[in-house]
Each structure stands twice: as structure tokens, then as C-alpha cells.
Design a protein around this nucleic acid. Structure first.
Lengths: 212, 212
DNA sequence: GTTGCATGTCCACGAGTGAGGACATACGCT
DNA sequence: AGCGTATGTCCTCACTCGTGGACATGCAAC
């Protein structure tokens, strides 16, 4: 439906690198949309215009392919820092699907599967949480970064995966400052009680969707 | 492994009510542990010491069984009110698995499946979110209740489903006041800027796990 | 006691899965 | 040019899944 517009008339024969890339691309789309269990290797292969056999040859197994997909997905994820909480809150609540949280979204749709969860837990720690923890002020940065990621995951899960309609309506915009305050409550240095809580009188800096 | 200790020597023959109950009980355990896709009807039937055929006879299909399980699971969920945010924060972060958030946990593990997600979205709105919205002060109560549920879901997802080790360590206790503040930032009436943010100097009322 | 229907049991079907063996082809090196 | 190997293709295997048909059994009403 959406990936038939790869290179259209180019047969791409005997090009391992291009084949690998096409598989990873199709797999990322399929895993993000359907989850680890929901996406089948046949479907991925068809979307990538590639024989099924090549998947197991190049990546060993479906699990190996998933691990590779997860790793690259987190590299384009929106980086969260205490200064970006406002933009993060807006992006989490308003962006339609956005590539900003590809990693997290991929995570959520596949969390049910135990093997997939283990792969993603590992990748989150390597690619996401370490960076976030380094950017946080104060102490307990690892734990607090994990809590921040957890909160963001929950919002994304409710909106995108569960399809909670209450978070996809016009009033959702009112929630941005609230979510911002909630994020700041965790991200701000502990002890410095002032935080930015209850800031932003609902106007909020209407930044350009912050899909960095 | 864990459900062989039902009624041991009682054949329970020709008792539809007891059979239904046993199926629901086994299904709830299986769905919560493995998710909708991960749990199979054969496995559920074996755990309930019942023939597979009875599942489709009594509940129509696996989907029908799941809907029934979801409905009953949310009735024993921890009710959240602004006054209980402290206990909720503690329960979410510290309780080992607890039956307090059976509904949410069941939700998270099955969120990948689209049909299951639809069933749960419906049940959440009926059994959980309506009640929470009524208990919230201020305006936009439905949207804010959805955001609260989202945040709680994220914490539970990271801890229980994804198995994030950073949220299952001793330092996690330090996060309780932070999560409490984050919840209050959303739950407290908007406009009244004071909230309870940055309250609780890390001591926190060590309430009894709050599994109401 | 006999009949009727709900309840319980056995078994099979068709579709789906991930994986891999066996063979064909074309690119790259000598 | 000729060979070798990486790459691409076809087809099958072994398995699990949800569902339902066909039959056995026991409780309950008459």
C-alpha cells in the first residue's frame, strides 16, 4: 500500500546492500504497525520485493531482523532533555504519528512478546536512556530517565497503540502544559523545588512540532 | 505450573457455572502473563482442566473470552483519585505485580493486537476512565483522566512488560515523590497553580501498598 | 422410566507461522 | 574466458493456531 514506490523499474539484482536495506525498511514499517508477533516474514519480504529466504539468510531469523530494526529506529528518535520537555510534550500529544518517536512506538507495539521485549530493553538502555541520563541534572539520573521514558511511553501507548480517542481530540491541546509540568517534575533537579510546574498558561510556545 | 492447585480431586462434572468460572480464571492468568496473542486456547483449556471445545461454546471465540476477562479485571483495579496519588505512585513503582492494576497490566500485554486493543479501549472507558474523570476537580476532566491513565500505563509497561531494570532497583523508591508530583501536576485542578508539586521530601507516607 | 437437552469429549480441517534444503543465476576475481 | 561463490528463487517441512463437526454422557423435567 505504501511501500510499492521503492525504486519502481529497477530490478536491483545481486545487490546485497540494497536488499538488506530494503528488508530493514519494510520490516521497520511492518513491526511498527503490527508489532513483532503481528508482522510475518512473508509479508515483510513481499513489501520489500524480496524472497523470504533472504531474510533468514541475512539476519539469521526473524528475531535477528527485529534486533537490527530496533537498533536503527532509536537513532532517529526525539532526544529528550529538560530544556526540550515543552516540545516533547507537544510532540507526544499532537503529532499524528511522526518519526520522532519511532523507537518508542516500535517498542510499544511489540512489548507483549518476551523475546522482543528483551531485545528492546537492551536497545533502549544503549541508545536512549544513557544519553538522556547524561543530560539530566541532579542525582539518580538513571532512575529518573527511566521514569521519563516510562511516562512518554504511556502517552504514546494510549494514543497510538490503544487508540484512546480522548487523547486525539481538540481538547488534547489543553493537556500540553500539564504533561510539560509532569515531565518537568521528574526531569528537573530534585531539591530545587521550583521546577517549571504549572507554568505555561495554556498558550505554550507553538514550536514547529519538534521532530528533531 | 501455578494453576494445578484448583480443586484437586473434585471432578466437577456437568457444572456449567463452575466451568465458565474456571475458564475465565485461567484465561485471565494466561492473558495477563502472555498477552492476547501469546496465550492459546489450548493452553487456557489445559490450565482450567477443561476441553478446548467448551471455550468456543461458552464464549463464542477467543475474542469473546478475552472481552469477558477484560471486563472483570478492571473491577478490582486500584481506583485513582487526586487524594490517592501518593499511594498510586508507590503502588505503581514498588508493588511486585499486585492485583491492584490487573486491568492495566492485562491491557499492556495485549495492546499489540488490534482487536484486543479495541476491546480494552472500550472497557477502560466504561470501567475506569469515567469513574476517574468524575473524581477529578476542574475542567477537561475526561482528557486529564486519560492522560493520568496514560502515565500510569507507561510506568507499569516499563516495569512489568518491558522489564526495565532501572525501575526495579532500590533507588526506585526515590522516584515515588517525583511520580507523585507528576501525577498531581495533571490531577490537580488547573489554574490553582500550587498543586502538591515538589512536595514530600523523599520521606513520603509509607502507606500499606494501597492495593484497594 | 423415559425422553430431551445441556454439558463434556474426541478428533480433524484449513490457514497461518518460521525455517531451511536444493537449485539457478550473475557478479567478481584470476 | 573460466571458475567460484555470493546472491536470488522455488518449494517443502514441521508446527501451532482458532474453530467446529460429530458423538458420548448425565442431569432434569414429565
Amino acid at each position: 500500500m505504501s511501500q510499492d514506490d521503492l525504486p519502481p523499474a529497477e530490478p536491483r539484482r545481486k545487490d546485497a546492500a540494497a536488499t538488506r536495506a530494503a528488508i530493514v525498511r519494510a520490516a521497520r514499517e511492518a513491526f511498527t504497525r503490527l508489532g513483532y508477533d503481528g508482522a510475518g516474514v512473508r509479508e515483510i519480504a513481499r513489501a520489500a520485493d524480496v524472497d523470504t529466504r533472504l531474510i533468514t539468510r541475512y539476519f539469521g531469523s526473524k528475531e535477528g531482523l527485529f534486533a537490527e530494526v530496533v537498533d536503527v529506529a532509536y537513532e532517529k528518535s526525539l532526544m529528550m532533555t529538560p530544556e526540550l520537555n515543552a516540545q516533547a510534550a507537544r510532540a507526544l500529544l499532537m503529532d499524528p504519528d511522526s518519526s520522532a518517536h519511532d523507537g518508542l512506538l516500535l517498542t510499544l507495539r511489540s512489548a507483549s512478546n518476551e523475546r522482543a521485549a528483551a531485545i528492546m530493553r537492551d536497545s533502549i538502555q544503549r541508545n536512549y536512556q544513557r544519553r538522556l541520563a547524561d543530560a539530566l541534572p541532579g542525582s539518580d539520573t538513571v532512575a529518573r530517565s527511566a521514569l521519563l521514558i516510562a511516562i512518554c511511553s504511556g502517552v504514546l501507548l494510549s494514543r497510538m497503540v490503544l487508540g484512546h480517542t480522548e487523547l486525539n481530540r481538540p481538547e488534547t491541546e489543553q493537556l500540553i502544559p500539564l504533561l510539560h509540568a509532569a515531565l518537568d517534575a521528574v526531569a528537573a533537579a530534585p531539591g530545587t523545588g521550583q521546577a517549571a510546574v504549572a507554568a505555561a498558561p495554556a498558550g505554550e510556545t507553538a514550536g514547529p512540532s519538534a521532530t528533531a
